[in-house]
Amino acid sequence: MLLLFRLLSNLFGSRGGATEPAVSPAANGQLALLGHQVRFDLLTLMRNPRARFFTIVFPLLFLVIFSSVFGKGHTVVDGHHITLTRYYTPGIMAQAVMAAAYANLVIMVTTLRENGILKRRRATPVPAWMLIASQALATVVISIAMATIMLVVARLAYGIGYPVSSLVAIYLIVALGTLSLGCVAYAVAGLLKNADVAQPFVQISMLPLFFISGIYLPTDGMPKALRIIGEIFPPEHIANTLHLASVNTSFASSVSLVDVAVLVGWALAAVAFALRRFSWLPS
């Protein structure tokens, strides 16, 4: 894992650092400019110790702890009897997506805004949508990389493998979940005054959901009220369809359209809210 990480950061580090392109990305079309921005967003993300800890170290730690402590137990997912070890891989993957797309983006965007970095970027010719699209893409890359690391760990440490159709479904859900939560993150950043309140807000809005959304615990035995609350928010739907993908062998039964619809709905509502409330200027 560390090796993969080194490799990635070396790749981006050397390109980002030393050479200057002969033709400016801005003169090379929008795709080149987007690629330019994504490269630097990834570089910034990978050099951020907080982002590294919460999106990589933390979920892996949870996967190993939960699997070792509760792994012998059993639960039922979509009619399949499985061990909790098998249950935790998609569950903790949903946690990783939350950390990368929601927690990390909310804290990063409010910090960048407070420090005037967003304002300074807006003072340049780069379009606003491109800065946001780049952050979304960079976050998807991180989420996909994280999902891959978890799948490899699950396979090597616990002997859990998946058919190709499930893997495709898992990656698609991870990407969709990341984009949906990324939109929510911008809406939340529009709501929060500064970076000081971002950290506690993120934790209080995220941690309880880990327990009632099928991430840390199966939801079967939970009181109905808690399950309903869980079903309102995106994490339950990311976790649920990842669980489906982890037990089913066909693509169609791996992806729940209801979950996909809820995630898209949250994304659209969040975008509508962010368009009204999000500001590039420090308050």
Partner: peptide, 11 residues
């Protein structure tokens, strides 16, 4: 700008 800090993590 009057107040702006450096891009985090970049040289």
């Amino acid at each position: 700008l009057q107040e702006s800090s450096a891009e985090g993590g970049l040289t």
